[in-house]
C-alpha cells in the first residue's frame, strides 16, 4: 500500500528517468571497456564474468550508489519542499511507513538497474568471450549479491534524507560518504563494512566465507539502520 503510494508521489519528478539513465550508463561501462580495450581483457586469466566484473565493477557500483543517494534525496525533498511532511503527520499513518515505502521505491528501481547491468555483463561475456547461457546463473548470483550490498546504503541515505529538511545537505552528506568509501583501505575487513563501501564488493574477488560474512553484515546493517530510524523518529517527536 505505502509502496504504491510512494510510486504515485514520484510522478514527474524525473526519478524514474534518472534511475533508467543511470542504469543504462552503468550498463554501458563494460561495453565501452570491451569495445576499446578488449585485447587487454581477452588475454587475462580467469572466468569471463570475473574478468568483466574486476575490470568494471568499481565504476558501475560507484554509479549505483550515487544513484541511490540522489534518489533518496529526491524522495524526501518532495515531502519537505511544500510542507507535505507536516500534512502526512496529521494523517493517521506512522511516519516510519513513509520510510519503508520510499525504501521500497529505491529497492524496486535498484532491481531494475541491476538487471540492466547484469544483462550487459552477460552480453559482453557472450560477445567477446563466447560464453554460453551457463554464465547466466553466475551473473544473476553476482548481481543478487550486489542488490543485497546496496541495501544498507539505500536505507542509510534515506535515513539521512529523512532528517534533513534541506535536500542539498543530505545530498552533500551522501556524496561525501560515497567518496570516503572509495578511499577506505580495502585490506581491513571492518573498514569495508562501512555501509557505503559495501556495494563495491563483488563475489568474484572474495573468498567463499568472505561472501557469507558480507551478506550477514549487510543484512545486520540494514536491520540496525531501520531500528535507528524508528528510534530517531520517536525521539525527534519528543522535542517538537
Amino acid at each position: 500500500m505505502s509502496l504504491v503510494l510512494e510510486f504515485r508521489k514520484v510522478k514527474r519528478t524525473g526519478l524514474a528517468e534518472a534511475f533508467l539513465g543511470g542504469g543504462i550508463l552503468a550498463a554501458a561501462v563494460p561495453f565501452l571497456n570491451m569495445t576499446f580495450r578488449s585485447d587487454r581483457y581477452l588475454s587475462a586469466n580467469g572466468s569471463p564474468v570475473t574478468i568483466l566484473m574486476d575490470a568494471n565493477w568499481q565504476m558501475m557500483s560507484m554509479l549505483n550508489v550515487l544513484l541511490t543517494v540522489a534518489g533518496a534525496c529526491i524522495l524526501y525533498h518532495i515531502e519537505y519542499a511544500d510542507h507535505t511532511m507536516q500534512k502526512m503527520n496529521t494523517l493517521p499513518i506512522r511516519e516510519v511507513r513513509l520510510f519503508f515505502g520510499k525504501a521500497g521505491v529505491i529497492f524496486t528501481f535498484s532491481i531494475l538497474f541491476l538487471l540492466t547491468e547484469a544483462a550487459s555483463v552477460a552480453a559482453c561475456a557472450a560477445r567477446w568471450f563466447g560464453s554460453g547461457p551457463e554464465t547466466a546463473a553466475r551473473v544473476l548470483y553476482i548481481f543478487g549479491f550486489a542488490l543485497l550490498m546496496l541495501l544498507p546504503p539505500i536505507l542509510l541515505s534515506l535515513l539521512v534524507s529523512s532528517l534533513c529538511r534541506n535536500m542539498w545537505i543530505s545530498l552533500g552528506i551522501g556524496v561525501v560518504c560515497v567518496f570516503a568509501a572509495t578511499m577506505l583501505p580495502t585490506r581491513d575487513f571492518v573498514l569495508t563494512l562501512f555501509p557505503f563501501a559495501l556495494p563495491f564488493q563483488t563475489p568474484g574477488s572474495l573468498a567463499a566465507d568472505a561472501v557469507r560474512n558480507y551478506a550477514i553484515a549487510a543484512a545486520a546493517e540494514a536491520v540496525l539502520i531501520v531500528l535507528l530510524e524508528v528510534i530517531i523518529l520517536n525521539v525527534r517527536r519528543l522535542f517538537e
Binding site: 514527474r12 511544500d82 510542507h83 507536516q86 496529521t90 494523517l91 493517521p92
Partner: peptide, 17 residues
C-alpha cells in the same frame, strides 16, 4: 487523526502532482 481534517499555516502539496 482519523476524525480530524486539518489545514495548518501554509498549504501542503506535491508540486509535481
Amino acid at each position: 487523526l482519523k476524525e480530524v481534517g486539518s489545514f495548518i499555516e501554509a498549504p501542503a502539496f506535491y508540486g509535481n502532482l
